[in-house]
Design a protein around this nucleic acid. Structure first.
Lengths: 259, 259
DNA sequence: CACAAAGGAGAGCGCTGCTCACTCATTCCG
DNA sequence: CGGAATGAGTGAGCAGCGCTCTCCTTTGTG
């Protein structure tokens, strides 16, 4: 992968295009064919890039190949994404949102599971299913950080949807008085303090030990899914992966105090 | 990253060099200056490549840069590694071995911790410490699979040293009669069967539920470490990461039945 | 209608992985 | 011992890459 400078150059979250000011008079909302075309081309680029990533992996993603398949000059692509890394960043944000939406699915669907532990399991199963269905996009967000490191910031919001889904299940159980204590005794003081601050900001009312346990479970869940997606469980768990995952995730729920 | 074909071309684990047959007569073990030089140059290439990976990440690793820093023509490098991916594979194997050695450290050192749970903690702490000290090499083995996918096979042996260290702790506890049951009831039958087969092959005598729990813990541990190394815990856990890790790993040990 | 802005095209720079003669030193063997 | 085979190293060169620049066409606006 050449792109020699790569110093996170144009990281001002894509080209600054001041949105066309919205006339307050009777002008219709058509907004011109140009804006529409821009949105469509942007979507086409991302879609083609996703296809190519699914075919060859993110490391092999090439702007020239994308532009070729789209029938446009490679230089035209830079009107939409100022660098290869910015395109990747956009795809990462999309992937975060897609995974987050999948995780939230069981919580907003018509018939959410009744017990907290079952809701927890449903969220984790959704995460696993999405990751197995979109391995390269999962790799984009939970594999090696691909832009030079320190990609986050812009990805901050979408990247928190999965842990917030896990927190929502736990907080819900707590509010209904069903959340038990975290087995095995309280965390050390430093952890307790930081978990309490975290809970105060993001999950008001949640006991600090539960918050710490959920935070750990988030990473553990991701590790479990990554092992499946990245093939680390090849020749280890083969036939019973789904049951193994559900069993492990249930034990994690118990380790948090979810009934 | 161009390397356009990349079809895992020369994956016959590097250049086939029939080892100089070992004369059974009184020939000394010097083996000629050539072999020695070859080993030294190979090591220098890998060392320089490791340096460059530590400086810029594996994605930016370039054979030409390595050869430049070594003062040799880029084409000469292909006498040692037939492709960039093969060099990366060699580095991956080395990283697996280094991590495995770190993990085994507490078990072979002069004064191993006494209780199984403390040995478990010591192994996990060693893994974490190595990963934080060698983030790019950790990314090489637990980030996005970098050669075209399906890298394993050659990495099979070295890649199992960490889980085997975890198994060793658990098996040792079991043999001394100290291993408790896995809390939360037995796994479903399919998991039980596969875990039993796994235990029969790699940890004779270990109860299948314990085997399943250790297998899960391996992935969970890796996820926990990866979150720290890859910056996923930024703005989540900051001050108390070490305590948080130790606390979580202790809870995992309890979840396996280690006293 | 005139003009500015946006989108697109093509050439070109420096980099990359990799191949191909070709040289030179070392090693093997009759 | 001396010719032959082998291995290491070189430099040129190919095609692909990210990215920039200049130029031209299309589109929307006052």
């Amino acid at each position: 992968m050449p792109h020699p400078p790569l110093k996170n150059k144009s990281s001002a979250l894509f080209v600054e295009r001041r949105s066309r000011r919205w006339h307050t008079d009777g002008m219709t909302a058509i907004q011109g064919a140009r804006e529409r075309a821009r949105r469509e081309v942007t979507a086409a680029i991302k879609s083609e890039a996703r296809d190519r990533i699914a075919a060859e992996g993110a490391a092999q993603l090439s702007l020239r190949a994308v532009s070729r398949n789209l029938g446009m000059a490679s230089s035209a692509l830079y009107r939409y994404f100022p660098s290869r890394d910015d395109l990747l960043t956009a795809l990462i944000i999309d992937a975060y949102n897609a995974l987050g939406e999948a995780a939230e699915g069981p919580l907003v669907s018509g018939d959410p599971p009744e017990s907290p532990a079952e809701r927890w399991l449903a969220v984790c199963l959704s995460v696993r299913e999405w990751a197995l269905d979109h391995p390269h996009e999962f790799a984009l967000i939970h594999g090696t950080p691909v832009p030079g490191y320190a990609a986050p910031q812009e990805t901050g919001g979408p990247g928190t949807r999965v842990p917030f889904a896990l927190i929502a299940v736990t907080l819900d159980a707590h509010r209904s008085g069903a959340l038990g204590p975290v087995p095995g005794g309280p965390p050390p003081p430093a952890v307790l303090a930081e978990a309490a601050a975290l809970a105060a900001e993001h999950a008001p009312g949640l006991p600090a030990p539960s918050m710490a346990a959920v935070t750990a479970a988030w990473a553990q869940l991701t590790g479990l899914v990554a092992f499946e997606v990245f093939g680390q469980y090849t020749h280890v768990i083969e036939e019973s992966r789904a049951e193994f995952f559900a069993y492990t995730v249930r034990r994690m729920a118990a380790g948090i105090g979810l009934p």
